[in-house]
Design a protein around this nucleic acid. Structure first.
Lengths: 342, 342
DNA sequence: CTGTTAGCGCATTCAT
DNA sequence: ATGAATGCGCTAACAG
C-alpha cells in the first residue's frame, strides 16, 4: 500500500482555492478572507488534515525536535531528569528523541549519527562518553564536528578537549555539605564509596571529599575509598567489602543513592544498623531515598531546575544567543534518618 | 544564521559527478564504478556529510520513527518497559519519540497530534486514556481516525469502542498465582489494595482476584478492597486505612509494587512486621521489589518480552502483515520474602 | 555505469 | 486577497 497522504493540494482542490491560500490559513502568515478561510477549515476538518511537518522542516531547516543521549532511562536519576527536561521542552514546543546508549559506545555513535540525520535542532547529552575523564580522542573529534552544526549541551559532564556548553549540578558543594554534616555529628572516620573511577561525576565528588577532609585536618584513609558502580548491586558489594575491613569508618558517603540503598540493605542483613552502627549518606535524592528505610540523607540534584536550565541553554544556543559556557545549578542537602550523632 | 547544509549537490559538484551518482553510493541502489565511488566517499568524508533524512522520509513516506505515549517515565514500570522496547526498536532501525503525558489529557492530545505531524511510522501506547474503562468518546473517535493511517499498539490497555491491536501481560493469571500462593500459605482473609477504579489494569486485576476468591469459596470482604493510586504515597495511605480497620486481612495483594512498598513502609513504622504480622505481595516486579526489605513477592511483567512483542506487532502492522488482534504475554510469579505461612 | 528530470508536501516570493 | 511558480534535499525513473 502506498500511504496516500492528504496534502494541501487536496484541500485546495476541494475548497476551490490555491494551495498557497491553504498554506496561509495553516501558518496565519497572511490575511485570508473569512469566507474563504471557513471553507478551507471545513475541508481540512472533514479530512482530518494535518500538515506534514517533514516538508515544513525541510523548508524551515528546523524540526522542533531535541535528542536526549543518556546511558539508561531505567536509572531513577535519568528518568527524573529526562522527565523534567522533556516537560519543559514540550512547553517550548519541542518533541524529544530518547536515546538509551546502555553505556555501549557503538550505540552512542549510532544514535549521534541518527540524531544528526534526523536533523534535531539540538542535543542534550546526559551521560555516556562525555563522562569519561579520559575521553576517546576520535569520538571527541566527532563530537566537535557535530557541535559546529548542532547545539549540544552537556549535563553533569565534561569532555576534555571538547569545549561544550555545560549545565551541571553543584556536586562539589553538595559533597561538602555532606562532609560538614557528618563532621558536625562528630564523625571523623569517613569513607567515600561507590562510583566509577574515571567518570567525571565520581572524580569530582571524590576530589571535593578529599579536599574538604584535608582542609578540616581529618584523615583521608584510602582504605575507606573504594567501590565500582552506580547500582544497588554495587552498593551491596561495597558493603561486603566494608564489613571485612579491620577498622571501619563511622560514616560513609556513597556516590549515589542507589549505592547507599545497596549498602544499607547488606549492612542491615549483617546486623549493622543504620544509622545506629554506621551513618550512610547518598547523593541525587532519587524518589526512593525518601522511602527506603530509614530514609536516606542525601543531596538533591534539583532535577527540575537542572532540566529546565539545560533546555533553556540549548534553546538559547539554537537562537544564537550569547550564553555562558558553564552554568552551575545549586544542589541542596536533604536531611533524613540515615546518619546520626556519633 | 542560515543553516547552510551540505547536500548531495555540493558533494556531486566537488566530486565532478551528478547528484544521482552520489545518491547511488548513499543507498547502494545501483552499481557505481569503484573509482567514482572512492572519489565520492572521499568528498563525503571530507565534509562529514550525512544525508538529510527529512528529505528521504518525505520521499519514502516513512520516517523509521516510533512514538511512545505513556503517563510518566519516572515510574519504574514504564521506564523499564520503555527501555526494553526502545532497545528492540533500535535493533530494527527505529528511533523513538518519548511522550510523557503526565496523565494530562491535553498533553496527550497534543502529543498524539504532534506524532502524526512528525509522520511517525507507528505508535506504542503504554498508558493514559487508553486505560480508562469508560473512555472519552471524542478521544476514542480521534484515535480511531489516527489508526486508519498509522499503526497503533496498546500495551496493557484497551479502550472501549476502539478496536486496536493489543499486547498485554497476563495480569489475570498473575493475580491468580498470587491468590493461590497466599491460599497455600493458609491465608483466607485476603485484601486487594491500591490501584484506581476505572483504570483497566486495576479493574482486570480486581476482577481476577474476586473471581478466584469466590471460586475457592473464600470470602471477598469489600472492606478489604480499597485504595486509590499507583504510587508509594498511595500505598502509605492505604496502609493507614488498613490499620484503622476493625478486622484486618492476614494478607493483601497490592495493585503494584510501589503500593506494596508504601504499605510495608507504614506498617513497619507502626510496628507491624511484614511478613510476620501480615503478608503483602505486589505486582510488576520493578527492580526495587527485590531490594526493598524484606524483598517483595510479586508478579513479573516480563518487560523484555512484553516490550519486544509490542514492537514486533507494531512493525508487522507497518508492513501490513496480518496479525492477531490481541497477544498475551505470560507473567510469572517471583517468590521473595514478603509473605509467609499463616 | 552515469546524467537529467521530476516530485515528495509545504511555504514563500512575485504577480495580479 | 489570492494564484502561479520555485525550492528545501533526496531518490527513482528514464535516457543515454
Amino acid at each position: 500500500m502506498k500511504k496516500e497522504n492528504i496534502t494541501i493540494y487536496d484541500i485546495a482542490k476541494e475548497a476551490s482555492v490555491s494551495p498557497a491560500t491553504v498554506s496561509r490559513v495553516l501558518t496565519g502568515s497572511a490575511k485570508v478572507r473569512p469566507q474563504t478561510m471557513r471553507k478551507i477549515v471545513d475541508v481540512m476538518e472533514k479530512y482530518h488534515f494535518r500538515p506534514n511537518s517533514l516538508a515544513r522542516s525541510l523548508l524551515y531547516k528546523q524540526t522542533k525536535t531535541i535528542g536526549f543521549i543518556l546511558p539508561d532511562i531505567n536509572h531513577p536519576f535519568f528518568s527524573t531528569l529526562v522527565l523534567k527536561s522533556e516537560a519543559h521542552a514540550l512547553k517550548l514546543g519541542y518533541t524529544s528523541f530518547l536515546c538509551n546508549t546502555m553505556n555501549n559506545a557503538i550505540n552512542e555513535s549510532n544514535y549521534l549519527q541518527s540524531l544528526i540525520e534526523k536533523q534535531v535542532d539540538g542535543i542534550i547529552y546526559l551521560g555516556g562518553r562525555i563522562n569519561d575523564s579520559v575521553p576517546d580522542k576520535q569520538y571527541a573529534e566527532k563530537l566537535k564536528k557535530v557541535m559546529e552544526r548542532i547545539p549540544v549541551v552537556f549535563v553533569n559532564g565534561r569532555m576534555e578537549g571538547v569545549d561544550a556548553h555545560i549545565v551541571r549540578a553543584d556536586e562539589e558543594t553538595g559533597i561538602e555539605r555532606l562532609v560538614e554534616l557528618l563532621v558536625n555529628l562528630n564523625h571523623q572516620k569517613i569513607g567515600f564509596l561507590g562510583g566509577v573511577e574515571g567518570i567525571t561525576s565520581t572524580d569530582v565528588k571524590k576530589a571535593a571529599f578529599i579536599q574538604l577532609m584535608e582542609k578540616k585536618g581529618l584523615e583521608v584513609n584510602s582504605e575507606w575509598i573504594f567501590g565500582n558502580g552506580f547500582s544497588i548491586e554495587s552498593g551491596e558489594e561495597v558493603a561486603a567489602q566494608l564489613l571485612s575491613l579491620n577498622e571501619r569508618p563511622t560514616a560513609v558517603i556513597c556516590a549515589n543513592d542507589l549505592v547507599a540503598i545497596g549498602m544499607i540493605k547488606v549492612l542491615t542483613k549483617f546486623g549493622l544498623k543504620v544509622p545506629d552502627d554506621i551513618s550512610v549518606v547518598g547523593f541525587d535524592d532519587i524518589y526512593l531515598a525518601e522511602h527506603f528505610p530509614p530514609g536516606i540523607t542525601t543531596v538533591s540534584q534539583n532535577y527540575e531546575q537542572l532540566g529546565q536550565t539545560a533546555i533553556n541553554v540549548l534553546v538559547d544556543l539554537m537562537n544564537h544567543k550569547q550564553i555562558e559556557k558553564e552554568i552551575i545549578v545549586p544542589t541542596s542537602l536533604v536531611l533524613r534518618d540515615s546518619c546520626k550523632l556519633l
